[in-house]
């Protein structure tokens, strides 16, 4: 029985992003699909640390009533968000330079132009 929770939805989003990376031919769309994959990984790990009826891992002056969610995946995914952001911007800059040089963003055309 497959539960429709954050873990399975995260895996589905990762697979969707990978499908886009494998089939799209435009460089900008490939970069967008990479970021979709990054979002899927973040959703997967954050929901891995979920606890039923848990509150966020922030103490209210030393007093806590409910169980708390796992703070470790959240802290690791904070790093992942930063890396995804800057890697996307770097990839977009590279795509701009590619367009300036070859006047196309299509992967097949780029391979043909390099073989000429």
């Amino acid at each position: 029985m497959i539960g429709f929770n954050g873990i399975t939805v995260g895996i589905i989003i990762i697979l969707l992003g990978l499908f886009g990376v494998l089939t799209k031919r435009n460089t900008i769309k490939i970069i967008m699909c990479l970021y979709v994959m990054n979002s899927g990984v973040i959703l997967f790990f954050v929901s891995l640390g979920y606890v039923v009826s848990g509150q966020a891992a922030i103490f209210d002056h030393g007093r806590t009533l409910l169980p708390m969610v796992d703070p470790l995946p959240q802290a690791v995914m904070l790093t992942s968000i930063v890396i995804g952001l800057v890697i996307t911007s770097l990839a977009l800059a590279l795509a701009l330079k590619i367009y300036e040089e070859y006047k196309t963003l299509d992967v097949k055309d780029l391979i043909n132009k390099q073989n000429d």
Partner: peptide, 14 residues
């Protein structure tokens, strides 16, 4: 500041 610098560079290019 890093995000702002990246934005400046991306929008001023070309």
């Amino acid at each position: 500041t890093g995000i702002a610098v990246v934005f400046y560079r991306l929008i001023k290019f070309g």
